[in-house]
Amino acid sequence: MSMNEPISVQEALIYVMVIVSASDNQMTDNELATIGDMIKMLPVFNGYDGNRIIPAAQRCGDILQEDNGLQLVLELVGDVLPAKLYDTAYALGVEVAAADLHVEKEELRILQLLRDRFKLDKLTVAAIERGAIARHRTI
């Protein structure tokens, strides 16, 4: 698949998770495990071939290496995802950011770009973020 070929909705969601994970220049084991777990269990990924995850992540990484790569990925994701999945995409990004129990400033920047790109309202954003805090809290 070349970078000019369209991506699926599921791949667009994977791209969101990859850009959050890669934002601090390292994809941790916890982040990768979270991505894999979400792809396995969430209904939005029903029917998605697990063997396509790594190639999709690599294609996203290739685009990120281009000039304005992050902007290209954000545009691609925004063009592919239906509006009803904008909050889902943001929630996936938040889950990946929270996977290490510490959100880096680079991850916060990507989440802000996603909020802006998807034009998410403050209440939706707060609910998604609060849910992630609750799910990732330790004793």
Rank of each mutant, 00 (worst) to 15 (best):
L72I: 10
E5T: 05
D67C: 02
L85V: 09
L64A: 05
S8E: 13
K119H: 12
M41R: 09
N68Y: 10
I133V: 09
D116G: 11
N68M: 04
L74P: 06
E107D: 02
S2V: 03
A89E: 11
D24G: 01
G47N: 07
L70E: 13
I7Y: 14
C60L: 07
E66A: 14
Q112C: 00
R52E: 10
V20K: 00
D49G: 04
L42A: 02
G69A: 04
I63H: 13
L120N: 12
L72E: 11
E129F: 04
E104H: 06
I7V: 14
E11M: 12
Y86T: 07
I133Q: 06
I110M: 00
Q112T: 11
N68V: 01
F45W: 06
I14V: 11
G69P: 08
L111W: 12
E95D: 13
V73S: 07
A132N: 06
I110H: 00
S8T: 15
T28L: 05
L81Y: 01
H136P: 00
A97S: 00
M38S: 05
V73R: 07
Y15A: 10
D49P: 08
E104C: 01
I133W: 04
L113C: 09
E106H: 05
D100Q: 00
Q71Y: 07
A91P: 06
S8L: 14
V77Q: 07
V9R: 15
V44E: 12
L70I: 09
R130K: 14
A89D: 05
Y86I: 02
V16S: 11
T34C: 14
R59G: 09
N68Q: 12
L42K: 06
A57Q: 09
V18Y: 10
I39E: 07
L74G: 03
R52I: 03
G93K: 03
E129S: 01
V20Y: 00
M1V: 10
A83R: 04
A126H: 14
L113Y: 05
S21R: 11
E5Q: 12
L76C: 07
D49A: 08
V9N: 14
I110G: 00
L85F: 08
E107W: 02
K119I: 09
L72W: 04
V94W: 03
D116C: 07
D29S: 04
D62P: 05
T88Y: 11
A89H: 02
A98C: 05
S8H: 11
L42Y: 12
